[in-house]
Amino acid sequence: MTTTVKAVISRAKNEPVELTDIVIPDPGENDVIVRIQACGVCHTDLAYRDGGITDDYPFLLGHEAAGVVEQVGDRVTHVEVGDYVVLNWRAVCGQCRACKKGEPKYCFDTHNASKKMTLADGTELEAALGIGAFAEKTLVHEGQCTKVNSEADPAVAGLLGCGVMAGLGAAVNTGEVKRGESIAVIGVGGVGMAAIAGAAVAGATKIIAIDISDAKLARAKEEFGATHTINSSGLSDDELVEKVQEINGGFGVDVAVDAVGLPQTYKQAFYVRDLAGRVVLVGVPTPDMTLELPFLDVFSHGGALKSSWYGDCLPERDFPMYVDLYQEGRFPLDRFVDERIGIDGVEDAFGKMKQGEVLRSVVEFK
């Protein structure tokens, strides 16, 4: 028997989202229906709405979600009805060449639900990142459900489903920042703040936040663990490098994270690191962007140039750990939630996101 619920969809490029009825089919053999309790409003949802990912409209938006498993397919073994879960878009297959090499964080064939959710007229919906959680309920593959501590606030825990995990993983998993090392994070929106918080948990001693907003820089230091801040507005790249080196004893940093994803900010990350330092790109470029660097500089600086997808996370390992750290007061996951809204507030939340007014708006389902 199908289920009809309220959900937020995007019908056309750059058009306001719409709250409407959608139809959820019975789960396939390895699928589950999850009753959504909360879902964060992520930049990726805005990118879907504005045509920055694909043009497979209509989209069912939302993916940073936590909820309770309500129905399971006949062959589901990973979760049970009643389990409290955070949804993820890296349900690894275990069979692709990355998984077989022992690198499931690069899985090339992650699982999604076997059936499509639809509009009331039967039009199939493309679920954002295979999840689609701006909805009272959604259909996902069992592997997209990660069980976490049931005492954690859904509005907080669900943020690990994308942006927060991307940022903290960029610092900890991809950048491999270690106790006693130094790190610079360029761009302190939600992803950059998470990179800073991750570096603090990992024990980095110099954590430098770089942005053009004094308000964001103040939050980075007061709430998320930055030890130093630099407002880069009006600074040349050389001047920025000098300021980082002044803070870090005359040297560049061990890890430099570009959480913006522009050629200019990537170059800044490249040059503010120390010799043999690691550069991590977690900000997402657009298809029209190109990068130019002196080839000799690439050779002479050494080190590693890495891209970070989903913070190189493994949800089954990382989500429960960071929820537990939050519950213990050791990771400031709750500080990313700037406002709690109803399902009818998504379009307004996109506007606040564009203006840089919030780290995260979170839709709560009563």
Rank of each mutant, 00 (worst) to 15 (best):
R278P: 04
H228L: 11
Q268F: 15
T265L: 14
S236E: 04
G302L: 15
N248T: 02
S233K: 15
P285M: 03
N248W: 00
S233T: 13
K267F: 08
F299Y: 10
V244T: 03
G303I: 12
T227C: 06
G277W: 02
F251S: 09
N248E: 05
V260K: 00
Q268R: 12
A269C: 11
V241D: 02
L275V: 08
A269K: 11
M289H: 09
D288C: 05
G249F: 09
A304N: 08
S232Q: 14
G249P: 06
K243Q: 15
I247Q: 14
G303E: 10
Y271N: 10
T286Q: 12
I247S: 07
V244I: 01
N231S: 08
F299L: 13
F270Q: 02
G277C: 06
Q268D: 13
T290A: 12
E242C: 03
Y271H: 09
R278G: 11
M289P: 04
F270D: 08
V298E: 03
V298C: 05
Q245V: 05
G261R: 08
S236C: 09
V284A: 01
A256V: 04
S300H: 01
L275S: 06
G302A: 10
T265Y: 12
L275I: 08
P263Y: 02
L296G: 00
V260L: 14
L291C: 11
Q268I: 14
E222P: 10
D288Y: 05
I230V: 06
K267D: 05
P294I: 13
P285A: 06
